[in-house]
Design a protein around this nucleic acid. Sequence first.
DNA 1: TTAGGTAAAGAAAGCGGTTTCATGCTTCTT
DNA 2: AAGAAGCATGAAACCGCTTTCTTTACCTAA
Lengths: 334, 334
Amino acid sequence: MTPKARPTYSVIAKEAGVSEATVSRVLNGDDRVDQERAAKVLEVVERLGYKKHRAATALASGRTNLIAVVIDNDLSVFSDPFWGTVTSGISRVLMENELQTLLMVTSVSSVDGPVAHYLNTGEVDGAIFFQLHKDALVRKLAKTGLPIVITGSPHAATDFVFVDTDNFGGGHAATKHLINRGCKKVAIIAGDIETVAGHQRVDGYHQAYRELGRVPSKSLTAYGDYSYESGKREMTRLLTEQPDIDGVFACNDLMAMGAIAAIEEKGLTCPDHVAVVGFDDSLVAQTSRPGLTSVRQDIVALGEAAAELMIAQLRNEPVEPRILPTELVIRESA
Amino acid sequence: MTPKARPTYSVIAKEAGVSEATVSRVLNGDDRVDQERAAKVLEVVERLGYKKHRAATALASGRTNLIAVVIDNDLSVFSDPFWGTVTSGISRVLMENELQTLLMVTSVSSVDGPVAHYLNTGEVDGAIFFQLHKDALVRKLAKTGLPIVITGSPHAATDFVFVDTDNFGGGHAATKHLINRGCKKVAIIAGDIETVAGHQRVDGYHQAYRELGRVPSKSLTAYGDYSYESGKREMTRLLTEQPDIDGVFACNDLMAMGAIAAIEEKGLTCPDHVAVVGFDDSLVAQTSRPGLTSVRQDIVALGEAAAELMIAQLRNEPVEPRILPTELVIRESA
DNA sequence: TTAGGTAAAGAAAGCGGTTTCATGCTTCTT
DNA sequence: AAGAAGCATGAAACCGCTTTCTTTACCTAA
């Protein structure tokens, strides 16, 4: 019934014939302890299977070994596998470094909501945020010196530490592919332009055109909201207004699927009449027919990178934002 | 730079003109404190925006307010939105109850691995596990008195507290629907039979047949592994051996998609020649063409229920396993 | 009036580590 | 060879809150 009583410094010190202070030194890697005594302490620790009591350590040292992963409830947290995958990557790496992952799914909006307060009062050693629209909270926290990593690019060009997929490169590759396969008029269905990621994908699209010495007509850019419905709606509109569109880059797979549905409803086929490229290489892309050509991002790696940047900060090592490469996965749709 | 110094009992006691012990009593709802003094304390607490120091509280009281959510790394954690969604539900409810979610993505396999040790030593107040094949670890932990909730049915009929979707009911409804729409020969592509969930879905299928006064031929049951490929492979085999199959219940959406692909490769169409029902009502089901008829489970609710059962246990309230209803979402495929 | 009982509140001892400070011992300086 | 300096080590304070134990004050009963 009772969790077995754990040993404390007191018993270890006694067993090893040293003081508790020495035990502490040994366990914290203080090198100015006699070799033999240190060895003895370690032997006892090993034999007793001793592990430090987290709360006690936290209280005494002021560091909790807890890293918060803050996820905005407002995002499409539910049903989108993205964040879960990132988080698992984060968690794995943190764990390997003796850090714990504290998950907070909440409305991040308020600058002085409970989350803000919580993070502000030294309850965690650092915080990893997921892409957010408003970064007032993050900015405020950063001022307190709390180590922070943002997954996804921060809104403004600040000096926040962040990790992100190469959205620009992905958008560029997707568009380039459409052009290379012979498309003459390539449209784009953008996602949330408010986010940097959304914007960068569009930029990549423009860049691909630019390299051709052309500038895409404004009328070729449609604005969706990452949902299937919006993709379908916008594609229908685009095709109605400009029936000669023969390629489209949708900024995520869901909208791409919507676009394909729209194309087929018009009595056209994909990729013969209109080629489609998505973004994410999600399950949806992999299982659809025609298989969806899509830009793959390594989501687990994104989480791992975030965790690594956090750990580097905790060690006071210099930290650079990290941008992970994408890969175009070619299937039937383009 | 420095996180602003937080007030402690010491200053609150001074401000309110009482002892620290009294402050503690007030803050822990001990009712035998003079009304006026209590009010005074609360006023000061409010004014100073005081919040207890978690580590200190944990050290002194022995309760950490931390609930571990343990996810087995071996599962298809990556790419499957299921776990992430459950976790977000858990986290939200725990948070509302002043509990923190500690995420552990790891190999649960070993009974005395680091996770086991961690959970065993009072670092958390409870643990929520995700469906697992081997429950040796859980069984051992339960013996120590650690409150535990299992998401998904435990393997053996034990007295573990668990929450699960009504897999039996879902399988039954799916099969019934196929029969009702006129299918004469309904096959099933089972998932992992080792798990209770996988088994129950098959049982539901049998039950639907039984209600018709029939018993499905063994040859109508195929075994996949929840992957798209396995669904496609098994469906191809089924149709080759028994071309008159006109309905199939795939135990998840991915296999259902594979099945549809197989059907179309045979030159047949869904639902005209073979009707298909999936399970999960995932994004895949929602965006596929034909839209996939599928059994929906409320995944967020699953997480919320798990958290609620955990909280009930912490309060020493009586706890019953909970089975959540499913809903058949009808689209074009059946 | 006085002994006995009860309830509110303060003093103080932990909880299990970390860290400062003092101590005794060895080593270096001239 | 004596005093300064350097070091490994232990004693003890401390982190912020909980809880037991004591004290104090007030009531009731005889």
